[in-house]
Computed example of a mutant assay.
Amino acid sequence: MKAIELTSPGNFLILEKEIKDLLPESVLVKIHTIGLCGTDFHAFRGKQPFFSYPRILGHELGAEVVKIMPETSEKYNIKIGDKVSIEPYLNCGTCQACLSNRQNCCEQIRVLGVHQDGGMCEYLQVPASKVHVSNKLSFDQLALVETLGIGLHAVKRSQLRQGDTVLIVGAGPIGLGIANFAKSYGAKVCLADFSKSRLDYAEKKGLLDFPYLVNAQIEPEDLKSLMNDKLPDVIFDATGNKNSMANTFNLISHGGKIVFVGLFTGEMEFNDPNFHKRETTLMGSRNSLPEDFEEIIKDMENGKIDSQIWITHHVAFDDLPKEFSSFIDSKDSVIKVIVNV
């Protein structure tokens, strides 16, 4: 089968890989669609944490089951021909996090396309427990489930309440996903980004109440002027930018919560008296849980999530190596790129 391997930062290679024998309680899927995300772009630029080269990228996947053992089919209610989204977080099942139903942050987690080879190939073998079936959704929609799940998980982590004021920093796919779910929870959403075109797009799609076009950095008084003299009850930072993340400690309301969804390779410092006097809650949000996948799929099937908001570009599998850098260069107009295999 064909696969696209990132051999080193900035360098892709199309190569042939063998399809391995099917393991017990696993399925072989035919990859139809792959969503590109910030993880892939950071890896291409050599700036992705938890990453090594060479690596086959791809963890946002829409696929079709092509091979499964009868006993696995019966146990997991999966059959050949099923259309599926793949949960790419391979957890150990025995660590403290896994035993507490927090397998999204398993101590030994292996994420497809990050810690081990992913789905930027024609066929992929995955554990049956990581397959989420929906024969109602398109392969494009199935490739969106993972990225939307990250936004949903972050909002659930925050225990967002109706009427809360929310600041989301970063209007990429993750930030827009967070905005979508924050709005559905009844929050008032301020979305901040350097890109006016992204903010205009989000406003057109009904994903924000207050756009904040960032110049140098976000200022508390500017936020108050936008949000009826209030600072946000909850801040989600989806930038993975150290300076942006550090600034959130100056923007949160007293008693508020900060959720770091993006990450960077380095250490974070903050002023403890400022943190303490506000009684700030700081949390990270990593990946998502199986129930988040199921909720996203159900909402897509019921028409509660408009998948057309997210997909702005398509590219053929064979054209990806030469087109990939153009999506980074055109980031203001690119929300989600879908690779068709």
Rank of each mutant, 00 (worst) to 15 (best):
F12P: 04
I14V: 13
D21S: 15
L22A: 11
K30R: 15
F44S: 07
Q48A: 14
S52D: 15
L57K: 08
L61S: 07
V65W: 05
K75P: 05
K75N: 11
Y76A: 05
K83R: 15
V84H: 01
S85K: 03
I86R: 02
I86C: 03
Y89C: 13
N91I: 06
G93W: 10
G93L: 12
C95Y: 06
L99M: 13
R102C: 03
N104G: 03
C106E: 02
C106N: 05
E107P: 00
Q108G: 00
Q116V: 13
G119P: 10
G119E: 05
Y123R: 07
Q125C: 11
A128T: 11
S129F: 10
H132A: 01
L137H: 06
D140I: 02
H153G: 03
A154N: 07
S158H: 09
L167I: 10
I168S: 07
I178M: 06
A192P: 05
D193H: 04
D193P: 01
L207F: 10
L208N: 06
P211R: 03
N215R: 13
E221H: 09
S225P: 00
D237L: 06
A246R: 12
H254I: 14
G256W: 02
K257N: 13
F264A: 06
N274I: 12
F275T: 03
T280P: 05
L282Y: 13
S288V: 09
L289E: 13
N302V: 00
S326W: 00
F327Y: 15
D332C: 01
D332M: 04
V339F: 05
N340Q: 12
